[in-house]
Nucleic acid binder design. Structure first.
Lengths: 344, 344
DNA sequence: TTGAAAGCGGTACCAT
DNA sequence: ATGGTACCGCTTTCAA
């Protein structure tokens, strides 16, 4: 008791060994439970470990063993967008269950931040990296290639990933929604989203969406991208801007459900009734959609599952188990009552 | 070019030094830019570093120097509750700006998960730990005390923290809201929140709230705690349960704004008008509140700022700068139109 | 079943 | 301005 409270710092394996009257090696073997010692020895060592409050120094373990650590670097654009928070939750929970630790990097949607973070995190000898998005700086790409560790790129499914890709095809998401809306009869669409320096998944959705709309004989008459996080207020404000611009749109497609909800609120404020006066569609089937009076027309994606799948892919790769280069976690359209069939 | 692409793994300082024709020490000095070498030497070494794609092994640095790492362990209950996501964002961004890395631990609100995570993360020699909440297992407490590193407990302001406490006084939050509502004339209050194994900040809010209500001559007639994450649907469902229980409540207080919004939606579904038929109050002044038609009666807390303050406290302590034992990041009541003055 | 010695990739310290 | 050497805490290897 007094023995341990006096030294708050650094009890080493050597000290444990000395206290137990055995060699470092024996103590080390006991600690790892890899056999090669007697019951009596084990009990003795364990007792001393407890007594001294020994905490192993994993830095030294990794270092000595020339292994990689159990760190997995995880880069996420921002947490103000609820979907990324869910993805992160899925990743961390799954990673933890396999004995890995998440080293977080919030990149604020910029590849420069990502590059700086990658450089730092690599110096800690991580077991692997999970990166959101597929655009990386040239220097980041070089570091990633030289790192010699598994890299899982998530979010936007990538047919030729650096290593492994887990996510959904955002172009297809947009295309499917576009096709659905044009099928309902909408012709003059609006879009409200956020913009960032790099091409991203939301951009891909908009492209797929635009393609489907024009294919169907309609057009994306107006689009507003705010440089902000994809949440409620930007959806509200973006809608205000879009409607104030005088564009005659019959339906607005939003970057995600949170923004769509902001839009719904602006419409209500303006006295526009949805879907009678204007249609509204979102993306992600986010939690808020479960409590609205109207079922929001959206597209379901399981963000938690996507995160878990990413962690599983990482663990598989680390363990040398086979894993497909790309894993599509899927989506499906959720028709709602915020859009309607347009008669002629 | 070919020189580096061939060896994806492990270029050591020794190799850089050899390539540059200098000693390890000189190369080390150049790398750290601490002087003691000529311009020519520096350029030569830098060139080789670049050529070989050398990535320093910080494990070895920390290990050799017997320093702590630049890791800061951060435990968060869950990310489904948007307020924690914001706190984490504030922490990570600030920490990054000071050159520290977040090692995340999602504890799912249990002290056992927290204990396991603390044990693991301590073995990586973190520079400090930021923990959400103030209840820890006995073994966790012992490990924390023996760790000899800064510990910042956040969220619930604690007058006698392990080390430093950053957050708000949740009891006071609840008390203030209770006083406000009772002042408006509400007398039979309901509460909808979530419950977890350990006493937490939400519990403290409820206690403060109950005290103020009873002090004012009212009572908390019914409370519903769901074992779920504090988000939209539990608010909706909890309200349904509460109202179905036949309790005559004139106002419902929710654990946070997300749950309150769920409650508002249920009321609307039921045809109850707010605040005419029933009052609704939340907590947190969360992003969704900014787009609602009615200003939600709530209590403003800056979650991002709270996270940032926690990171600042951590950095100050690591650097040995003075920092108060407790830092209150404050709150203020936001009267809204989801509650009203009750006439006698 | 157990132990001694070497070494992982850096840095501190002392020489030169 | 530069280099040699010991050493951080642990594991690997080889011997006993």
């Amino acid at each position: 008791m007094s023995e341990k409270s006096s030294k708050n710092s650094k009890v080493s394996l050597a000290e444990v060994a000395r206290a137990a009257g055995v060699s470092k090696m024996t103590a080390s073997r006991v600690l790892r439970g890899e056999g090669g010692y007697s019951e009596k020895t084990r009990d003795l060592v364990m007792q001393k470990i407890d007594l001294l409050g020994y905490v192993p120094n994993r830095l030294a373990t990794v270092f000595a063993g020339d292994q990689t650590s159990t760190f997995v670097g995880v880069s996420i654009p921002d947490l103000g967008n609820e979907v990324f928070a869910q993805v992160l939750e899925g990743i961390d929970r799954k990673l933890r269950s396999f004995g890995y630790q998440t080293v977080l990097g919030l990149t604020q949607h910029t590849i420069q931040e990502e590059e700086a973070w990658i450089e730092t995190v690599l110096s800690w000898q991580p077991a692997g990296l999970i990166l959101t998005g597929r655009s990386h700086s040239p220097r980041a790409l070089e570091m990633l290639r030289n790192a010699g560790i598994p890299i899982v790129e998530i979010w936007d499914l990538n047919s030729s990933p650096l290593d492994i890709s887990v996510g959904v095809n955002h172009y297809d998401c947009g295309f499917e929604m576009g096709r659905y809306l044009v099928g309902l009869g909408y012709r003059s669409l609006g879009y409200v989203g956020t913009s960032h320096d790099t091409a991203n998944a939301a951009t891909a959705r908009l492209e797929g969406f635009t393609k489907a709309i024009t294919d169907g004989g309609g057009s994306v008459a107006r689009q507003f991208c705010l440089h902000d996080t994809a949440s409620y207020y930007p959806g509200f404000y973006g809608t205000e801007q879009l409607l104030a611009s005088g564009a005659a749109v019959d339906c607005i497609y939003y970057q995600n459900d949170a923004m769509a909800f902001g839009g719904l609120q602006y419409c209500e404020k303006l006295g526009l009734s949805v879907p009678a006066d204007i249609g509204v569609a979102g993306w992600g089937d986010m939690p808020i959609a479960s409590v609205l009076q109207q079922r929001l027309t959206s597209l379901h994606v399981s963000h938690l599952k996507l995160g878990q799948a990413a962690a599983e892919a990482m663990v598989a790769r680390i363990s040398g188990e086979p894993h497909p280069t790309a894993r599509d976690t899927g989506f499906h359209l959720v028709p709602g009552s915020t859009t309607r069939q347009i008669i002629g």
